[in-house]
Design a protein around this nucleic acid. Structure first.
Length: 186
DNA sequence: CCCTGATTCGC
DNA sequence: GCGAATCAGG
């Protein structure tokens, strides 16, 4: 079978369009699509006449802002204390302080130790595009790999995570101190 | 040095 | 049309 990656199939172009408009950087889109470099992505963006994106003035959102924004979607550690999540936590008194929850595992033992958890929802992986406000954004797997996805379970209203992952992400300082091990992901 | 998008130009 | 190399910049 000739597994030729059809470079820019309609589907891939569509995905490219959506991700680009989602505000993802070219490099991220590239890794998301897989098999293409960020240059390829940028090149395609231009050929499609999509350059400029927000096109708000000439301000290139590049740099920290964008990086933070992007990571906020991918890593649980990116939750800021001013975020609705943090506020909600304070108000509910469930948590005292945010824990810089483990960023996506370095070696990602997750993917290895992840047989086939989701049985309820569709077996389809929850990609960034499938995420809705009500879905758990806990990252699963290696963000640099195509199989990267999110938990996708019903998230606690006002929080970015489902009860299970919120418990891991937001641990009371006291509890953390006492029971520091946390073993990591699930 | 990390990153961003923009452009060029041989293929 | 494609995308690596390069450019220009935060």
């Amino acid at each position: 079978m000739t597994e030729t990656v059809p470079s820019w199939s309609d589907e891939r172009v569509d995905l490219l369009r959506r991700l680009w408009q989602e505000g993802l950087s070219a490099s991220r889109i590239a890794t998301q699509l897989g098999g293409v470099s960020r240059n390829a992505v940028i090149g395609k963006i231009h050929r499609l006449g999509l350059s400029g994106r927000g096109a708000k003035g000439v301000e290139a959102p590049a740099g920290d802002e964008v990086r933070k924004a992007a990571r906020a979607v991918e890593a649980p550690a990116a939750v800021t204390e001013t975020s609705p999540a943090a506020t909600a936590i304070r108000e509910t008194g469930t948590v005292v302080q945010l824990q810089p929850a483990q960023p996506p595992a370095p070696e990602a033992p997750v993917s290895a130790a992840e047989p086939e958890p989701l049985a309820l929802t569709t077996s389809r992986r929850v990609t960034i595009m499938d995420l809705r406000e009500s879905m758990c954004r806990w990252p699963l797997g290696d963000p640099t790999k195509p199989d990267f996805h999110y938990c996708g379970e019903r998230a606690i209203t006002g929080l970015p995570y489902c009860p299970c992952h919120a418990q891991i992400a937001y641990q009371p300082a006291a509890e953390r101190k006492r029971d520091r091990r946390v073993g990591g992901f699930r």
